[in-house]
Design a binder for these strands. Sequence first.
DNA 1: ACAAGTACTTACCCTAAAGTATGTATATAT
DNA 2: ATATATACATACTTTAGGGTAAGTACTTGT
Lengths: 122, 122
Amino acid sequence: MTAIKETSTIQENKQYALEKCPVTFVMEKMGGYWKPIILYHLSTGDKRYSELKRAIPTVTEKMLIQHLKQLEADGLVIREARPVVPPFVTYRLSDAGKGLLPVIQAMADWAFKVKDGVYNLQ
Amino acid sequence: MTAIKETSTIQENKQYALEKCPVTFVMEKMGGYWKPIILYHLSTGDKRYSELKRAIPTVTEKMLIQHLKQLEADGLVIREARPVVPPFVTYRLSDAGKGLLPVIQAMADWAFKVKDGVYNLQ
DNA sequence: ACAAGTACTTACCCTAAAGTATGTATATAT
DNA sequence: ATATATACATACTTTAGGGTAAGTACTTGT
């Protein structure tokens, strides 16, 4: 998407993380500001591009497709385009993407516990 | 830690996310490149600062304490300093931090499934 | 004729996060 | 006297990610 300077330390670190830390491996797939939100919205079923756009009103179109493309490239979502005009494109979770739902769920559980005062974060 | 420009759009978005999306709320606590790795290492028990440093050889000291301070400020880890010299400082997960372990675990499970070929990401 | 809706693309800018390098204080070991 | 270990701090630079704004192509509705 954006050109990557192969020599940068952060890229080397990403290599390290991929081999050494499973958690960071996941963060690389679902990290990025909007990705978890997108996955969350796709967890309830297929969505058209425009449906996602309306469901997440504060995301810009650039960010939305950029992340959708990345998620697709990472094999987490499947893009289906019907050859009609105006375009009709739906996105849905792949099996791998569905496999991330327990992660999403565990996150949501924690967040709700925080809101319910089960944990106090100060 | 770093001064924040209150008017920036990303800050408005963070507000939005906090109220609207539990998943993003979590990502703000444990997002950041090294945080999940640190939590992962603390999940097996208390660690001294220097132990963490050795356990995660590619992290710079600046990043390590910066994230430890943030995790502490967010109420996820507890810092304990014994008044001796040379310093003896241990970090451990708080209850809230321990509450994130299912998230970490779900992530690790997914990563291992990917490695075992349960999902194919291409 | 013109606006609106579809799903994007692209050029440019700005900032937050990460990295580099160096410094601090105190005590023990050599 | 010097080095090492502890746990940081801080000034400066780089980079990756996100944001802004505009444009594309094609069709239906008014």
